[in-house]
Design a protein around this nucleic acid. Structure first.
Lengths: 234, 234
DNA sequence: TTGAAAGCGGTACCAT
DNA sequence: ATGGTACCGCTTTCAA
């Protein structure tokens, strides 16, 4: 029993021939080591949990692709689930993943995430990374874009090209993503000496789909109100 | 010990108050049952493994989204990985998933998949579904489109709209997908009394990206050679 | 109605 | 260099 384990993990404790004999037999009978039993004993997991809002949005599917490849390179598998804008579902998923013994978590939190979401991973010392949308006022590791800067760059681009009015369709209001981009836009307007009224600001669920389509065209949620802009979808 | 287990699974063996007391304490200390240990004992897993070629292609990301939602509704989590057109990687992934104790597998096999891929799941009686691309001459469950019919419909559409020549860019040649679509196109040409030379047939790795872009435009790998077709990308 | 104990498949310590 | 054994957290049988 123990010897087989030593053979599989190549601990160097066994003689060349004993090890080879064991591996040969294992190969022949199609043996695959039970990673769960292993984790149960050692506490080391080969699973990384990933919770995103959706995976249909190309931004997120590219993210999934990259995460999965990085995980594979590190010898991990990804447990993927989507929270569908539902904080309750998000929490259930996180608990399910902990139940499955994930060794680490990557979460892009939904709007309305409660402050205690990460308590479960924190208590168990499961390394957790928050991405895309931040969780303010919490102890966490965050990876994401500088939303403020992106809004600023987008608005500046429009202004530089002679546009004086624009519309901001950022999806859900009062998220850190939305607020950051909006602030960036307003800053750009201010620096150009334009009144903030020149940017129509819209937020809400119904606009999310529109914004999504806009994002697909590479405009990051900012759409130009002038109908002859070469960068905007027809 | 045993009593806690009974409380969690609500077997009805415990008195109302004992159960409630246990659940309260569990809640308070943030207890989450270890699904792996459970699986180890019972053999029942809450994991469904999914192996696709890629997840960047919108066709597959929509598939992932649907699979994940269905899994969630059934109380399962999805273990997702991409084979990246690499049969070796595909096999390693499958073994990793078995090692993680998946209860079922869903695979869209890569081109060049060896015949013994599913031997590992078969031996362990892990229910396995092959999708999108078929594995001919094997005992398996397959779910996918009628490729022949889709090629036929696409070519018929072009012919009906007055086009007499076309190009088929189907990506990798000699896959069941490619062959099916090609045969459908040729059948449509035949029925219209057109020679098969009227369809340029191209296959190969370099064309895969082109075909992918074409698919994004909703043309399912069939592109019209006439440059004024309203349906084709500009 | 409750609890003690064995065992799932590994790993790691200890002894041989 | 090798194998016996306890234990990881849970479920299930059996006994109390």
């Amino acid at each position: 029993m123990a010897t087989v384990s030593y053979a599989m993990s190549d601990s160097g404790r066994l003689s060349k021939e004993t090890r080879k004999r064991i591996l040969d037999v294992a190969e022949e009978m199609g043996y695959i080591r039970d990673g769960n039993a292993s984790r149960l004993r050692t506490g080391h997991s080969a699973l990384i949990g990933v919770i995103l809002n959706t995976v249909k949005n190309p931004f997120f599917s590219e993210l999934v692709a990259s995460l999965e490849m990085a995980a594979y390179d590190g010898g991990y598998l990804t447990l993927l689930a989507t929270a569908q804008n539902d904080p309750v579902r998000q929490k259930k998923l996180l608990h399910s993943m902990i139940s499955q013994g994930v060794g680490a978590m990557i979460i892009s939190p939904v709007h309305g995430t409660s402050n205690d979401l990460l308590a479960a991973t924190a208590r168990r010392k499961i390394p957790t990374v928050v991405c895309v949308r931040d969780l303010p006022n919490q102890e966490r590791v965050f990876v994401g874009a500088d939303e403020m800067k992106s809004g600023y760059l987008a608005a500046s681009h429009l202004i530089k090209n002679g546009h004086r009015s624009m519309t901001f369709l950022g999806g859900y209001g009062s998220t850190s993503t939305w607020t950051g981009r909006k602030d960036g836009i307003l800053r750009a307007l201010g620096e150009a000496g334009l009144p903030s009224e020149n940017c129509q600001i819209r937020a809400g669920t119904l606009l999310a789909d529109f914004a999504y389509e806009t994002m697909r065209w590479g405009l990051l949620g900012v759409s130009c109100a002038a109908h002859d802009c070469r960068l905007c979808p027809k």
